[in-house]
Amino acid sequence: MSDWNESVIAEFRANEGRVGGYFEGAPMILLHHIGARTGTVRVNPLVYFPQDDGSMLVVASKGGAPTNPDWYHNVLANLRFEVEVGTRTFTVEASELDGPERAAKWPEIVAARPGFGDYETRTSRTIPVLRLREVA
């Protein structure tokens, strides 16, 4: 997975935030999360969902695995971190969508990227959705 992530990150940076293949046409973000135990900054490429209020939603799907992705735990431990969107790098603050808010947004996410609906069928966990808001 690390080599795959590295190739997506390189493509993202070489093409002003655009990635082809499976991610063709999807809005992409590079999330610079801080290791909860190590303090090491790591980068993960993710699809994001722009919102009318300027925030962005990201989904901790891990392809429908039974556990949440490591980046999700790191984000909860360090809610402020940097992201790259297109050619911009800026600081965001994360918050997790609660039950009713997540329930309202989930159908929109699945309508935009049906793969997330497939991931949901592969796991018994509720797949977390996080809102990222730019901060000064």
Results as ranks from 00 to 15, higher is better:
residue 19 V to C: 10
residue 112 A to I: 04
residue 75 V to K: 02
residue 10 A to N: 12
residue 37 R to L: 12
residue 103 A to H: 06
residue 42 R to A: 10
residue 98 D to G: 14
residue 104 A to W: 06
residue 70 D to R: 08
residue 26 A to N: 14
residue 4 W to N: 12
residue 40 T to Q: 15
residue 124 S to W: 00
residue 69 P to Y: 01
residue 50 P to N: 04
residue 112 A to Y: 13
residue 127 I to Y: 06
residue 31 L to I: 14
residue 11 E to S: 05
residue 64 G to K: 01
residue 111 A to I: 04
residue 60 A to D: 01
residue 131 R to C: 06
residue 39 G to D: 08
residue 69 P to C: 08
residue 94 A to D: 14
residue 29 I to D: 12
residue 67 T to S: 08
residue 116 F to W: 04
residue 12 F to Q: 05
residue 48 Y to D: 05
residue 113 R to K: 12
residue 29 I to P: 10
residue 7 S to L: 07
residue 73 H to N: 03
residue 126 T to A: 09
residue 34 I to F: 06
residue 132 L to M: 07
residue 107 P to Q: 10
residue 36 A to W: 15
residue 58 V to W: 03
residue 107 P to V: 11
residue 2 S to F: 10
residue 122 R to Q: 10
residue 22 Y to I: 14
residue 46 L to H: 09
residue 130 L to N: 07
residue 116 F to P: 09
residue 93 E to L: 07
residue 123 T to G: 08
residue 42 R to T: 13
residue 22 Y to H: 15
residue 125 R to G: 11
residue 2 S to C: 00
residue 4 W to D: 11
residue 107 P to C: 10
residue 7 S to Y: 03
residue 85 V to M: 08
residue 71 W to E: 00
residue 47 V to L: 02
residue 36 A to P: 04
residue 51 Q to A: 05
residue 118 D to S: 07
residue 132 L to C: 00
residue 63 G to P: 03
residue 54 G to Y: 01
residue 2 S to H: 11
residue 7 S to E: 13
residue 4 W to T: 12
residue 131 R to A: 11
residue 72 Y to C: 03
residue 37 R to M: 12
residue 85 V to A: 10
residue 80 R to E: 15
residue 115 G to F: 05
residue 80 R to Y: 08
residue 2 S to G: 02
residue 64 G to M: 01
residue 3 D to K: 06
residue 83 V to T: 02
residue 136 A to N: 12
residue 104 A to G: 06
residue 22 Y to N: 13
residue 57 L to Y: 09
residue 81 F to H: 06
residue 57 L to D: 01
residue 115 G to A: 04
residue 36 A to E: 15
residue 128 P to F: 02
residue 32 H to P: 06
residue 81 F to S: 09
residue 18 R to V: 08
residue 6 E to I: 00
residue 98 D to A: 15
residue 63 G to Y: 02
residue 63 G to V: 01
residue 100 P to C: 09
residue 103 A to I: 03
residue 107 P to H: 08
residue 90 F to N: 08
residue 13 R to T: 07
residue 90 F to K: 10
residue 10 A to R: 15
residue 10 A to T: 13
residue 11 E to D: 09
residue 5 N to E: 07
residue 27 P to W: 13
residue 87 T to P: 00
residue 86 G to I: 13
residue 98 D to E: 15
residue 46 L to I: 12
residue 118 D to A: 10
residue 114 P to E: 04
residue 31 L to H: 12
residue 63 G to T: 05
residue 14 A to I: 01
residue 72 Y to V: 07
residue 109 I to M: 04
residue 68 N to R: 02
residue 109 I to G: 05
residue 45 P to H: 06
residue 115 G to H: 06
residue 41 V to L: 01
residue 23 F to V: 05
residue 90 F to L: 13
residue 120 E to L: 11
residue 12 F to Y: 05
residue 72 Y to E: 00
residue 46 L to K: 09
residue 7 S to T: 07
residue 44 N to G: 09
residue 105 K to H: 14
residue 136 A to R: 14
residue 125 R to E: 02
residue 120 E to H: 06
residue 53 D to V: 00
residue 136 A to C: 06
residue 100 P to E: 15
residue 85 V to S: 07
residue 19 V to F: 11
residue 11 E to W: 03
residue 41 V to Y: 05
residue 9 I to C: 03
residue 56 M to W: 11
residue 108 E to F: 10
residue 33 H to Y: 08
residue 110 V to Y: 10
residue 125 R to N: 05
residue 87 T to C: 02
residue 59 V to I: 04
residue 5 N to Q: 14
residue 83 V to G: 11
residue 100 P to D: 15
residue 114 P to S: 09
residue 84 E to V: 06
residue 108 E to H: 13
residue 50 P to C: 01
residue 37 R to D: 15
